[in-house]
Design a protein around this nucleic acid. Structure first.
Lengths: 130, 130
DNA sequence: CTTGACCCTCTAGTGACATGAGGGTGCATA
DNA sequence: TATGCACCCTCATGTCACTAGAGGGTCAAG
């Protein structure tokens, strides 16, 4: 598999795959005569793991941790569990923040004024902080 | 007002205030004999506006637009309105994404396995993409 | 007169890539 | 054989919105 193929199969961009290699998240693959990267199924598995973890919102550092844990089949599952729980807490925090924010904006309602001078949105933004 | 005072009153960090000046979001204030920045109420207003906009999730470029609009009291309010609507749409998109993500993680349930080899979380992450 | 809180400029780092320059490879078609 | 085209390579730099640090200066209180 060339880098374009594996990118397509994982849903990553070509540049991102190279970036992950530079970051040490995946091993450098062998090269073709023309110096092209050649990947096999093990790379596909690893990149899939990374892609899914990233899609779930884990940072690259967290992905590094998950990979280390996943690489030891006899290790304990507890650490993974803990990461998931913490991650959910973070997501809930973000959800709450976005909800509040949405309500804030909706609260302005549609601005029926015609000029900026009477615009409620601009008004709300201009008001001094409490 | 010195930079520390205005930072406290706006809820911004000192470095952020200087950063906004460098970015041209606020005018450079006059200086004291000792080369300290000295701010007045107009700076306070503008920084408050920026801070509130940022808290609501607008990017600095959007803040720039909002400032330009706010600076013309006779201008039309429509553009501001449109930005708010677009912004809400973006927020809804993010909310939906986070919800899905949360469900994904919760779906794994608590991992009652003891070793990584049986861990459902690791399993879910390893599975090939559809 | 010294201490400590505050201020200054300038540079570099963060996360997770994206973009572009300037070139090489490999295969099909004219 | 030449040529076009899609794909690949490395290396450098840009993105966003700050944040941190080095190395210094200012100012009021005790």
């Amino acid at each position: 598999m060339k880098i374009g193929d594996i990118a397509k199969r994982t849903g990553l961009k070509v540049e991102t795959v190279r970036f992950y290699e530079g970051e040490g998240l995946i091993a450098a693959p062998r090269r073709s005569g023309g110096n092209y990267r050649l990947y096999d199924e093990s790379h596909l598995d690893r990149l899939t793991f990374i892609k899914r973890s990233r899609d779930l919102g884990f940072t690259l550092d967290q992905v590094r941790d998950l990979l280390r844990l996943a690489d030891d089949p006899r290790g304990s599952c507890d650490a993974v569990d803990e990461m998931a729980v913490l991650h959910i807490a973070e997501i809930d925090h973000k959800l709450a923040g976005l909800q509040t924010l949405r309500e804030e904006i909706v609260k302005w309602g549609r601005c029926d004024a015609t000029t900026i001078a009477e615009c409620r949105l601009i008004d709300a933004l201009s008001s001094r902080l409490p």
